[in-house]
Nucleic acid binder design. Sequence first.
DNA 1: TTGCGTGCAAAGGTTTTGCATGGCA
DNA 2: TGCCATGCAAAACCTTTGCACGCAA
Lengths: 136, 136
Amino acid sequence: MKKTAQYSTRQRRVIEQYIASMGDSHFTVDSLCAALLQKGEMVGRTTVYRCVERLKNEGKLRKYMQNAGESACYQYINGGHCQEHFHLKCENCGDLIHMDCHDMTNLAEHIKSHHGFAINPLKTVLYGVCERCRTK
Amino acid sequence: MKKTAQYSTRQRRVIEQYIASMGDSHFTVDSLCAALLQKGEMVGRTTVYRCVERLKNEGKLRKYMQNAGESACYQYINGGHCQEHFHLKCENCGDLIHMDCHDMTNLAEHIKSHHGFAINPLKTVLYGVCERCRTK
DNA sequence: TTGCGTGCAAAGGTTTTGCATGGCA
DNA sequence: TGCCATGCAAAACCTTTGCACGCAA
């Protein structure tokens, strides 16, 4: 949790506004750049990288990696809502599923008390195959 | 599950033998190259990449990513033993913990039957902080 | 005016690919 | 002999860094 931004620039406002408007769907630096461009907002790629990095450090964005060579995925942390639940990502269609499950929360507690390991839900992504892809 | 190797070359034998000897500890392409070099075995980096990629496709290696910019981690799947349990990775010390936990297996069942999502334990890594780092 | 923010260009790192050569069957 | 495997060099990516200029406060 580093210090927050000091200056409010056009680039920051545009990026933060767009990210917040996306709800909890995930995005990459690439898709973010493309979306901004489509809106006619010119923001340098470097700035986008620096901005999401800072937002991550401020606890406003989750960041996770799926595969080598691919770009990192980011997701807006909507007022702490997504801090409580876990995320499932389909290896087939790439869909990100938000799972509010009491059993999962209980398990995290169990792992902490019995295995001594404190799971970080912000960093953790459970991979597998979603229902739609399984029954297809 | 693609077709298996057709030719048995020195490079493949050396790599597969070394990987199998490592048990279930994790390694990167870099550390593998260094280890082979130390043994006096010359194996090109490209060959190592191609070899672990094929072993992964054959289901003999797990592959996972932690952070952008870092290299991918691999782990030998020891006769199916590691297919049954889950892996915890400490974000602080990098330690990979093998967790055989019935509750976790039950949870995976629950998620499959109630949420329709089939978790892939080979791909999934739970991130967090291990006991040693927490109490330090 | 001060100093953080921006963005271009270049560097840094991992992984993949083209291609000629080598080696197993 | 046929064809896969190897490895060098180069390319392809994603991401970070250096540096001069821009701009908020």
